[in-house]
Design a protein around this nucleic acid. Structure first.
Length: 656
RNA sequence: GCACCCAUAGCUCAACUGGAUAGAGCAUCGGUCUACGGAACCGAAGGUUAGAGGUUCGAAUCCUCUUGGGUGUACCA
């Protein structure tokens, strides 16, 4: 049930006929921040003091008078400058939690459905998936699951990068550098090697001519800095603020120059230190243009290029699907960029025809209000860009799926692109379609920089998953530990538990962080089985199930008629209250599309369950009624936690 | 240069979008337990919310400036 909207509705009633927009003010009923103030609080009186020209305390008093919540709450209390504090009645909690348990969906109602398209994961199929792909995949998947569970109509679409420059590189690499034996043996690995090879050489060729200039910049920056420093000693006594700022600026410039030089040196060195690479680089000058040419040929429909693309694509997709299968992620559609390719020319023509797009410096551009740079939909050389594809994609989705909302789960670096895209969509006339960029931050290593290995290469996602599962295995399936817990597990069960715990750990670490902030990827921490981790929550589910098993009581819907909840101890009451807030947590979590809201709700419930079963013994309860009541709480906690985890794409096990 | 994002406890993060004494988890220190699986529970300590102004009944949150970081910025995706 939705406690919040129930309470808000009552406040709206009390306010109607008194203030202008009662619903807006009723929104100011929230969970109490501090439990000493009750369960919920209404911060309604204070903001109204001006419009009503009354003292907040008087407003609160009158509001409480008009308020009809006797069936839900104890007598409301007024505190501080005019807060109204509410405490739910124990009988109310007991009755509704019991009702929720009789329901398959734990009392979660169906919303009036909207149609959503969620666009997430969208890896570039030419590269192996890496840690950066986790966020989009996991956040998108969680939103997909939650929205569906609430009753929305959701279409999940994996907008694969399967048509861009990267294929030009692969095709070029295949034509010139392929090792046929390796390709026959492990085609995916060989293609990925070719891709990296071409990229490396391109990087080398781009870096090489810049070296001299970079040295120069560093030298000048050094000179400038030492000049300023020399001046510092002379002027020591009367150093001006300006001089300080200059020095700082010089230092900054030097650091930037050093960094650039360093990165160039690395790229050049990587090739020059390997004779065979150097030879390739020299025998294939201007590789970037050559690769671009391959891309262009593919886009123009060159038969050989297309044949190669058709040969490579399924290989790459199979590889990606292995990862999805492991993660338990599914899509309704996997329309990559290539799918929209036939529409692109029409899109541009239509934009030109309607006058929205114009030619500028040879390119076809949309000059959108509020943006300096235009959105380019066709390059000078005639090629289309991802902006073109994105517009075509909106058109296709509108025509075929009739969405109310499209969500793009894509990292924050593309926010400007999406602002432009959405502005373009509005200009085209999609003004009733809601478009949201569900942006998220970067995954960082422990050095605070984007996550990489010590050697600087990105870490493959599969490797990471393996490591998480292995660590989970070490921790959970430690023979001593299992023996102490009195659990005998087959090898298969152990591997299964390790997989559920390990993969859950990676997903949960991601989902429990506010999506907009960067977060530090620390595999050691996330697989740890204490603290705010999925393993802790999963463990509480296992403990609850263990108690239920031991009791020998079947808690099916029919049996519930003979059960009642007695909320005597604070720990029991608090648990019941939190369990009943499940539906609110779900709604709040999709309101602005933050799975972290659900994650922290679940952690709260798990902690409260731990407190409960520490303080309230279940199987040795004082009376049969209390035993049954506490069994119900275990049952409810296990169900809410497993359902909640499932909605985050995380599994649970019977025992661990 | 311009635009956007960020700065909260030793560390990693919250704060229900302007509400009461800013909360969790690690780590630290102390305590509980002859019971349902100790991967537990309870408690303490830890903060001038980067800094300075402003807006109002009330600011971590909104506005301005400063400092320090990140990202993007006309033909990559």
């Amino acid at each position: 049930m939705q406690l919040l909207s129930l309470l808000r509705a009552r406040f709206e009633q009390a306010l109607s006929g008194w203030v202008d927009d009662p619903a807006v003010h009723a929104q100011r009923v929230t969970l109490a921040r501090d439990p000493r103030h009750g369960d919920y609080q209404a911060n309604i009186a204070m903001p109204l003091q001006k419009t009503l020209e009354m003292k907040p305390l008087d407003i609160a008093a009158r509001l409480v008078e008009k308020l009809n919540v006797a069936d839900i709450c104890q007598t409301p209390e007024i505190a501080g400058p005019g807060f109204i504090n509410l405490r739910l009645k124990d009988e109310f909690l007991a009755e509704h939690l019991l009702a929720a348990l009789g329901d398959e969906r734990l009392g979660v109602g169906h919303v009036s459905p909207l149609t959503y398209v969620i666009d997430y994961s969208a890896p570039n199929v030419a590269k192996p998936m890496h840690v950066g792909h986790i966020r989009s995949t996991v956040i998108g998947d969680a939103l997909n699951r939650i929205l569906r569970f609430l009753g929305h109509h959701v279409i999940s679409d994996n907008h694969l990068g399967d048509w861009g420059t990267q294929f030009g590189m692969i095709i070029y690499g295949y034509k010139h550098f392929v090792d046929p034996a390796a390709y026959a043996r492990q085609p995916v690995a060989e293609l990925s090697r070719l891709y990296r090879l071409v990229q490396q050489i391109i990087a080398y060729q781009a870096a090489k001519p810049k070296m001299a200039a970079a040295y120069d910049v560093v030298r000048r920056a050094k000179e400038k800095k030492s000049e300023l420093q020399a001046a510092t000693t002379e002027l020591a006594s009367k150093q001006s603020a300006k001089h300080k700022a200059d020095l700082k600026q010089a230092d900054k410039e030097l650091r930037a120059a050093d960094e650039l030089l360093h990165s160039l040196t690395e790229k050049v060195g990587a090739v020059e230190q390997a004779p065979e690479l150097l030879q390739l680089a020299q025998s294939h000058p201007e590789l970037e243009q050559c690769a671009q040419l391959e891309t262009a040929k593919l886009h123009e429909g060159d038969r050989d290029s297309l044949a190669l693309w058709e040969q490579f694509l399924p290989l790459a997709i199979t590889e990606i699907e292995t990862v999805y299968r492991r993660l338990g992620v599914e899509f309704d559609f996997t329309y990559g960029e290539s799918f929209y390719q036939p529409m692109l020319e029409g899109v541009v023509e239509e934009l030109l025809r309607s006058g929205m797009a114009v030619e500028s410096e040879g390119a076809i551009c949309l000059f959108l209000e509020g943006f300096d740079a235009p959105m380019i939909v066709r390059k000078r050389d005639g090629a289309f860009l991802y902006a073109t594809t994105d517009i075509a994609t909106i058109e296709y989705r509108v025509e075929h799926f009739h969405p109310d909302v499209i969500l793009y789960v894509v990292d924050h670096r593309q926010s400007e692109h999406f602002s432009k895209l959405f502005a373009a969509a509005r200009a085209i006339g999609y003004d009733r379609l809601e478009l949201h960029h569900i942006s998220f931050g970067t995954v960082l290593g422990s050095d605070g920089k984007p996550f990489k290995t010590r050697s600087g290469t990105v870490v493959g996602l599969e490797t990471l998953l393996d490591e998480a599962v292995e660590r989970a295995y070490q921790a959970v399936c430690d023979p001593q530990r299992l023996q102490k817990a009195g659990i005998e597990m087959s090898h298969d069960e152990q591997r299964h538990v390790a997989a559920v715990v390990g993969l859950g750990a990676i997903k949960y670490a991601d989902l429990s962080h506010n999506r907009t902030s960067d977060y530090e990827f620390n595999i050691e921490k996330m697989v740890q089985l204490e603290g705010n981790t999925s393993a802790y929550i999963q463990y509480m589910v296992a403990r609850a199930n263990s108690i239920l098993r031991k009791s020998g009581v079947e808690l099916d819907a029919a049996a519930l008629d003979n059960f009642a909840l007695h909320l005597q101890q604070p720990a029991e009451r608090d648990l019941a209250l939190q369990l009943l807030q499940f539906e609110d947590a779900l709604h709040q979590s999709v309101e602005e599309y933050y799975p972290s809201v659900l994650a922290s709700y679940l952690f709260g419930v798990a902690k409260q369950f731990a407190t409960f079963f520490d303080q309230c013994h279940v199987l040795n309860a004082d009376s049969p009624e209390l035993l049954r009541s506490r069994l119900l709480l275990c049952h409810a906690a296990a169900r809410v936690l497993s359902q909640g985890l499932r909605l985050l794409g995380i599994g649970v096990v019977e025992r661990m």
